[in-house]
Structures are given as structure tokens and as C-alpha cells.
Design a protein around this nucleic acid. Structure first.
Length: 290
DNA sequence: CATTTCACCTGGTGGC
DNA sequence: TGCCACCAGGTGAAAT
């Protein structure tokens, strides 16, 4: 489900709830689909480690983990100090796919259908991965064997004007397809591609390399504006997205084109059009976007 | 190599 | 109410 703002919201929420905690028990459901690393290897790697931090990278949620067998630390104050001094030795990487959810709950709360992972922490809380469509992926990396995780593309909130323009001037696919390509920019998905193209006044069917520098700069700034606001509002809750605490986001109320097919453009009243580009439903205003 | 299409899944919605 | 077609926040393998 999640694009950059939703993943950022979830990662922040999980970080707040599990930082400094220790993994005491791991349960994985037998469905092999979501496991990029075999479940047994993952469970062995995770058990006994301290969670130093949780953060977002592209659309991935990255758990920074301490050394295996580090002394348990029940005292939250000391756990916080440990966070400062320990350096990460391994990572657990979660990709939510289309319908994935990461939740921090109590072990007693009812287990939702399609729960594929339950991770018990020393504090008593439980981390759960739920994913009906099973497009999500779980991966474990031990630095000694696998090195650290590297997202493929640039961060849309950090990239500068020149680099952004250079990236998109090299491509002849449609600008919509280019925005969705995670090896160029990491974190932009269908909602925020459509919304930022609308804000920039650029038609999604345009060829990436045909955009002027000024248009690309408008797009980069629109992307920043849209993504930042969406993060501030906790992401877009379409269908049933919720954050780590089960709370909804509110950016869906700000959508100008996404899933507004046939409704009037908020600028010019022209009906919003929906077409298929790069195999995805694409929404735009035929008058405002050239 | 760059680009496009399609398979992978389950569930919700709206038309008949 | 039931059945069915279509749609969905993503990606990577296969085809072009």
C-alpha cells in the first residue's frame, strides 16, 4: 500500500515503540512468499538482538540491530544509552508491497487474518507483519555475510536540481513511468506520482527526456511539497492503511487528481481523466497539465 | 541495454 | 442476495 509518506509514518511509529527493545521470540507463518531470506535463517538472525533504531529508506523499513547475544537490558534508561554506544551488526528489512502492515500491539490482542510474522519483545509488546496479498518482502542481512542494505534510487526529498534533471533527461520512457522507477527515485508510487505531476502542470504521458529544465524543476519542487505535506498528515488512507499504532492518515483528503476520475479539477472544473500509463491507473487534468 | 507487459495475490466495489 | 468483472498503494521476471 505504502509510498514514501506512509512508510515514513510507519517507520517513525515503530521506532518510537520498539527502539532499545530486545527480540526474544520470532514466529513466522509457513507461507514462503514474503521471505526474501529463508524464514529459519531470519528467525535465527533476529532472535536475541537489540533493536537500535528503525528508519525508512525508499519504500523499505530498515531495523538496525545490535550484536547477537548482547546482554538483555530491561531498564529503558540503560537501553537508551546502549542505543547510543552500540553499532549495528545486522538489519531486518521490511517491504510492505501493496497491502502490508506493521503493527506494534500486545501479544493478547486478536491476530488478524494474513498475519505472517509475530515478533515478541523483552518489554512485552509484539511486532506484527500482516499482508493479505503477500506482495510484501522480509529480508535479513548480517553485515559480516551480506553487507548493508542499499536502496536503489535517490531520495526524492534530498536530491538537488541538477542531479534530478540529469536523471530524467537520460530517459525516454513517459515521465509517469520514470517517477515510478525505484532505481531512479526511491519512494514515489502511484498516488504521489499523479499528485506531483498535477501540481507541476505536467502531463503524465510526456516523455521524460522531452521535459525542459524548468518543468523538471517544477516537478522536483512539487514532489517535495506533496511528499512533505503527506508525511505531516500521516500519509494517505485509501482502503485500509493504518500506521504502527493503528491510526489512519489524512492526506487522502488533499488528493487533487488521484481517484477523482470524472470529478471537476479544483482549478478549472474540467473533469479529471483516467488513462492507463505504465500499466497503472493514471489521473490528470487535461486542461491544467500540458 | 532500455522499455513494456504481465504474473504474482486477496479483497472490496459496483453493475446486472 | 449472488455472481462476475474490474480495480487496487508494488515489483521483478519475461518478453519485445
Amino acid at each position: 500500500m505504502p509510498e514514501l509518506p506512509e512508510v515514513e509514518t510507519i517507520a517513525r511509529g515503530v521506532h518510537e515503540r520498539v527502539r532499545g527493545d530486545r527480540i526474544v521470540q520470532v514466529w513466522f507463518c509457513g507461507q514462503p512468499q514474503p521471505f526474501k531470506t529463508p524464514p529459519v535463517q531470519q528467525a535465527n538472525g533476529l532472535t536475541g538482538r537489540t533493536i537500535l533504531a528503525v528508519h525508512r529508506s525508499g519504500k523499505h523499513i530498515v531495523f538496525e540491530l545490535g550484536a547477537l547475544g548482547a546482554a538483555p537490558n530491561a531498564n529503558p534508561k540503560e537501553a537508551h544509552q546502549r542505543t547510543k554506544t552500540d553499532s549495528p551488526q545486522a538489519q531486518w528489512i521490511v517491504h510492505l508491497g501493496m497491502t502490508g502492515r506493521l503493527l506494534v500491539t500486545s501479544p493478547e490482542s486478536p491476530v488478524a487474518p494474513h498475519t505472517h510474522a509475530r515478533i515478541n519483545l523483552a518489554s512485552g509488546s509484539e511486532l506484527r507483519f500482516v499482508d493479505p496479498r503477500r506482495f510484501g518482502r522480509l529480508e535479513f542481512r548480517d553485515f559480516r555475510r551480506d553487507g548493508t542494505f542499499h536502496r536503489p534510487g535517490a531520495e526524492p526529498l534530498a536530491i538537488g536540481a541538477r542531479e534530478f534533471a540529469a536523471l530524467f533527461h537520460q530517459r525516454q520512457m513517459t515521465i509517469k513511468a520514470a517517477l515510478l522507477n525505484q532505481s531512479l527515485l526511491a519512494g514515489v508510487g502511484n498516488i504521489y506520482a499523479d499528485e506531483s505531476l498535477y501540481q507541476a502542470g505536467v502531463r503524465p504521458s510526456r516523455r521524460s527526456n522531452r521535459l525542459t529544465f524548468a518543468e523538471l524543476e517544477r516537478l522536483r519542487l512539487a514532489l517535495r511539497k506533496v511528499l512533505r505535506k503527506a508525511v505531516r498528515l500521516g500519509g494517505s488512507s485509501v482502503s485500509n492503511y493504518v500506521d504502527a499504532n493503528g491510526e489512519q492518515g489524512f492526506f487522502q483528503l488533499e488528493h487533487c487528481v488521484y481517484q477523482r476520475t470524472g470529478k471537476p479539477c479544483l482549478h478549472c472544473e474540467t473533469p479529471i481523466r483516467r488513462v492507463l500509463i505504465a500499466g497503472r491507473g493514471t489521473h490528470y487534468c487535461p486542461h491544467c497539465q500540458r
